[in-house]
Design a protein around this nucleic acid. Structure first.
Lengths: 392, 392
DNA sequence: GCGAATTAGATAGACGGTCTAACAAATCGA
DNA sequence: TCGATTTGTTAGACCGTCTATCTAATTCGC
């Protein structure tokens, strides 16, 4: 059943618009918010007054003089209004960030992970407590309340937020959200790490204001986050974006999914290192692979070129189907971006339709390794603002 | 700039909900509308009263007795409230339907098409006039007003509704909507034929109530209509869904797009007939191809099996990326569906991820050749209801 | 037959949004 | 000091939905 649309819904919707306008334009005046949101200045006045009353927004002390007329007062999301926590849960490490409600990072940490569910959750819990404790304001004022927690996990999550399968962690069918919510005592949002990272790029990274883009990342597998028509797209079951299992070489390298020739047997960090090993180059990680390529090692050069070619071929399918305006290379892919991009672009030229290819922009993620935990922040922010989903 | 969200917007939104609930459940009572839309019965009462006042809805004369209590009065979209016209514009033929606002067909016709722009538009104009004239009620009452016209064209249309390129018609960069609107004197909506057909399946066909599905069709090319997250998805430039140009055989048959091995060089009506000819079977159309296959012709059997295999391979990419819950085979593909489905399913089994494949339903379009003109109706209906786009 | 029960639908009033229009506030420039 | 200019507030109109109550029309039990 669709949520009811009544005056409460429209108030929330307009409040969220004002919030994001203010988040993206810190220290702007009420007048600017009117222009940005399209709301009448009287409406803006009412909404801002309410947000100030709720402690969500604060006025700067000093009015800013303009050329002529009454000076404007700058507004901003109050740092004391609350704290959001984002986390990235991986087998080896857990990365945690704390931000203001506006998404400004105030604290971060990295702790060891675990493939044991109880251990991982305990460490996550302790890590979050520590980060929140460290986020206390210096002047000894009351700590901002924890408003929400968002966590990105390398796992298939269904549309209800249930963990279906996490091969790297060895977990399956785990009601991870309730487990965490009970332990942490704040609203918890859990999502696939790539989808979370895509949200981060949209709110804080390279895709601000972009309505249709694709986020690509590659660790143990290759994941795609589809942001389509102004929303993160999840698919009928919540599994959309599985670009890593497109068949790029029929009958090719065997994949963990049981098929052969999947993209991620050629392009993920794991598979690139494996292939390097097969060709006599034992390397610890992609940084080493990038270093070797930078020094001119022909094996790595060729390997990364092949990877770029396969990725470009798979990406061309996505481009022809979804016609995104922007593709972001993120995660570990950004480490080797310089060496895969030429072949990737060539493959796109060869396989993507010209009018779709022509207007396609391709960028390397500015968030880098922070994309997933910041995606947790994005999830938590969305949850805090909690717009009933079918609206906007 | 996003449209303003105010009380007028929420009224329209709720009115549209009531309209669609009533369209999908003809002769239901006001009480049922409340349940279907989630609106309070008082709200429903107000909305229905207003729609009756506007002539959009009418009450049936006879109240329907229930087991106990006051009998309910059946409601329906008034046939006299207006007429919608949908058309399919092809080089050879123009197909036109007229329906009530509820989408009930009241008249249809088929006239010759033309690749000359002026001729085609003139014939379309005359054909629509004729169909509208023939739709007069038998009792000699005033004819319902023409509320909108929707047209599906085999063309790349940009997001502003401008015709960018129509290879089969030989048109490019044509402001077709203004041309038609001036001539026809009613709101005109023009869109890609496949996207229109997908809308028809959603409103009137196999996809009623389905939020994420893919519509596939194949005439001169192979097109895909993506309906994602409850909306027709257009992509950054409006070109989304070009499944026909996925590379399925690297270095394969040359395609009109300049590349090689595109899906549509194996699966479209044109290419199937061409391949049949190369193998010594000269056939006029897909009906003949289906007939030959039905009679056991091994050449056609093999050919269609290969087509199914290629289509399934390309579709597996779409499934892995978009995770649709339903795939509809429409247009000319439905003619040969019986002979391509086994290989198509096998290719999906081989190349689509198991959890995504498992819950995927595949159906043949119930609308068949009417999908495109009914898609025009869907466009016109959407336009008539004109919900500001970012809402719902 | 007749009143109680039951269900559909209408109505009154509360409530809560945004918008228009007028007003108050704060500055610049002459 | 006064008018012009621009920002921000306020009063009131307007228009939605929602709650609560009322009316209408029927069946059921007796």
């Amino acid at each position: 059943m669709l949520p009811r649309v009544n005056s409460a819904a429209i108030r929330r919707l307009n409040m969220v618009r004002v919030f994001h306008a203010l988040r993206e334009n810190p220290n702007c005046a009420q007048r600017d918010l009117s222009r940005l949101t399209g709301l009448d200045k009287a409406t803006t006045s009412a909404i801002v007054a309410r947000m100030i009353e709720e402690g969500l927004v604060e006025r700067s002390e000093a009015p800013r003089a303009r050329r002529i007329g009454r000076p404007e007062t700058a507004l901003g999301i109050a740092p004391s209004a609350g704290l959001l926590v984002g986390a990235r849960l991986e087998p080896g490490t857990i990365r945690i960030v704390a931000t203001t409600l506006a998404g400004t990072v105030v604290e971060q940490s990295q702790i060891p992970g675990s493939t044991d569910l109880a251990t991982a959750l305990r460490r996550l819990h302790e890590g979050i407590d520590a980060v929140v404790a460290a986020s206390r304001p210096e002047d000894g004022a009351a700590p901002p309340p924890l408003r929400g927690i968002g966590i990105g996990i390398p796992a298939l999550m269904d549309r209800e937020g249930r963990l279906v399968l996490a091969p790297n962690l060895g977990w399956r069918d785990t009601p991870i959200r309730p487990l965490l919510e009970e332990a942490l005592g704040a609203p918890v949002h859990v999502d696939n790490d790539t989808k979370a990272a895509a949200m981060a790029e949209r709110l804080f990274g390279a895709c601000r204001g972009v309505e249709d883009f694709v986020y690509l990342t590659g660790h143990s597998g290759v994941g795609g986050g589809l942001f389509l028509g102004g929303r993160l797209y999840r698919g009928a079951q919540g599994f959309a974006g599985e670009i890593g299992h497109l068949t790029v070489v029929p009958g090719g390298r065997p994949c963990g999914c049981g098929k052969r020739g999947c993209l991620e047997t050629y392009v993920s960090e794991t598979s690139i290192l494996a292939q390097a090993g097969e060709r006599g180059r034992v390397l610890p990680d992609l940084w080493a692979a990038a270093a070797a390529a930078r020094e001119g090692d022909p094996v790595l050069r060729t390997l990364l070129e092949e990877a770029g070619s396969h990725l470009g071929f798979a990406l061309s399918h996505l481009v022809n189907l979804a016609n995104p305006g922007l593709v972001v290379l993120g995660g570990n892919l950004s480490i080797v971006a310089a060496f895969i991009l030429p072949a990737l672009n060539a493959a796109l030229d060869e396989h993507a339709l010209e009018p779709l290819r022509r207007d396609l922009r391709l960028v390397v993620s500015p968030l880098g390794p922070d994309a997933v935990p910041m995606g947790g922040i994005a999830l938590a922010m969305d949850g805090f603002l909690s717009v009933p989903s079918p609206i906007l």
